[in-house]
Design a protein around this nucleic acid. Structure first.
Lengths: 340, 340
DNA sequence: CTGAAAGCGCTTACAG
DNA sequence: CTGAAAGCGCTTACAG
């Protein structure tokens, strides 16, 4: 009984047992229309009986595709799993879910250090396309991936610092406008923007542009909290707002370019005894879980998480057919930090 | 010039260009000791020049292994990427990082609904082993994976409800003891436990056992907040504590089996005007990012995230060699919620 | 140290 | 509707 051997069963084993050829097994298991239902049933049963599964290594080699999507999450060097931005994780989940719905497996890789940078998934026969997400602060990583673009390759980026690459992003200008409109509606009169607008993180600059538009539309002058460096976005936010308060502050609300910075800002404000939302209103972007549990709850704007993954995957595979959607719509969740 | 053709280059193209055989190319690129440095350099250069990468589909087919680890994250049905427990994400990151350090790629899949359940990664030639993590509440999923165990297979579970499967877990008893010891040291006299101890989530029961041990060691009687159902752990915690308070409560501290429940509990306490940490102290488990930003900050106990991934991956591949470590050590982070 | 040849387990023209 | 044969691109005994 060859079926009883310890080696894994092959399509030939199934063929023998079902009394058909290897070709027929392949067609039956692949769901080919051309096969008789009776034959298919026989094959399926034989496969089940000997615990046969198609070996994807061989199938893909022959077929030439992989049915897999590679997802690279760019991290900051030295970051451990607990330090990675929750939004990156959420986006990762969203991409995996969207890929799965479209019948793709996902090969996931977290990359932080120069020696780990790798994007040749297509050449290696590992994937049919690549989604790159993660922190914009790792400049070396983005430079590496930009360098890859010379070859023809299916890649799409979330939060790429380079406008010439294929990207999908939140509708950041709309987010900026939403923030200002909300703050003004809550009675604030001088909302300031917190976030680096000259950084490679164009998304921040886009949020700032939307902020400016809405400010000017309301007859107000835009203003900026000067940025500070920090090991994390939180520290950046805390340091910037701390220094700004030391200089006298001068606004009654802050729209922070991301929740992590807003949460840092919140700590700095509390630390100095500035009441939120009473003296200063605060809004962020990303809708991190932590935003909900902050005290007061942090008003925040965020892209639809499911839509983000879908758009990324679709952008990858519909690259040819017309301009794919590249902007994920955003919405504002009002919480205590702006409830004056 | 065959190198100029549009098709992807193969090892034969490299061989031609370097003036060696295909075998030599393979050995040179695989880092075989047996190859002359001069030959290797020639091969490397030729490969570089024509942009050659080894096709892993073929390499793996021939070699018989995959160099890949499958990671399944079990979710609750209907959960979107934004709803998945941050701790699951962190654990996922930790496993991917640990796998990468050991030279493995990671194939990630989020599974929630019955039709999606899949664990035959080895049979499919997709992976050499499988790590299953995620919510214990999806009973159908765990039953499915348990059913897989009949065949010989490399799997390891985090948070498996089944003690007979290969698992890696936090040192949950130590966590329970730590919580009680900390609460008593802070001056609380009657810490209660919040979490389902009869559920398939054995980890909760283990934390409860540790809690009981420390209580009895201190001459105190263990007590339980009756559990309630909810769509999320937070809602479970909020509902349970709400109902418990309605019944008169009767403890001056709560150790919740996980942070998500603790955060729900915190909301319920605030909602009813119970002061934390003044009237009731509160501690959780997991160290979610949200725990840090809660008001007051949530005291919490957590496993070392990096260690969790390492132990899982090691348990998978050292299964033969003696008993692998299966308990991840935990530590307590004191915050405002127990700072009386 | 290097090469010629076989073969990993599929899928897919090509016949019939 | 089904089968015999070729071939996807590697790696690895087996020779030399």
């Amino acid at each position: 009984m060859s079926e009883r051997m310890k080696r894994r069963p092959t399509s030939i084993d199934v063929a023998e047992r079902a009394g058909v050829s290897q070709s027929t097994v392949s067609r039956a298991l692949a769901g080919s229309e051309v096969i008789t239902e009776a034959t298919r049933a026989r094959v399926l049963r034989a496969a089940e009986e000997i615990g046969y599964f198609v070996d994807e290594r061989a199938a893909r080699l022959r077929r030439g595709s992989t049915g897999t999507l590679a997802v690279v999450v760019i991290c900051r060097p030295g970051e451990s799993a607990a330090d990675i931005n929750p939004f990156s994780y959420m986006l990762l989940g969203s991409v995996c879910l969207a890929a799965s719905e479209r019948g793709f497996e996902t090969l996931v890789s977290f990359q932080a250090r120069e020696e780990q940078f790798f994007g040749h998934y297509e050449e290696r026969g590992w994937a049919d396309g690549l989604v790159v997400i993660g922190t914009t602060t790792n400049r070396a990583a983005w430079d590496y991936f930009r360098g890859l673009e010379k070859a023809e390759r299916r890649v799409v980026y979330w939060g790429s610092p380079f406008d010439d690459l294929e990207w999908v992003r939140s509708d950041n200008r709309a987010a900026g406008r939403l923030a200002v409109e909300h703050l003004l509606a809550q009675g604030y009169r001088a909302p300031c923007f917190l976030g680096a607008i000259d950084s490679p993180q164009h998304q921040f600059a886009e949020r700032y542009e939307g902020y400016c538009e809405a400010m000017r539309a309301a007859g107000l002058e835009p203003c900026l909290v000067p940025t500070r460096d920090g090991a994390t976005r939180e520290e950046e936010g805390a340091a910037a707002v701390g220094a700004w308060l030391d200089q006298g502050g001068g606004a009654d609300a802050i729209f922070a370019a991301c929740d992590a910075m807003a949460l840092g800002a919140l700590e700095a404000l509390k630390h100095r005894g500035v009441a939120v939302p009473g003296e200063i209103g605060l809004a962020g972007f990303d809708d991190l879980p932590a935003a909900r549990f902050a005290q007061p709850g942090l008003t925040t704007i965020a892209p639809d998480p499911a839509a983000a993954g879908s758009l990324l995957v679709d952008a990858l595979f519909n690259a040819g057919e017309g301009a794919p959607l590249r902007r994920v719509s955003v919405s504002l969740t009002p919480r205590g930090s702006t409830a004056r």
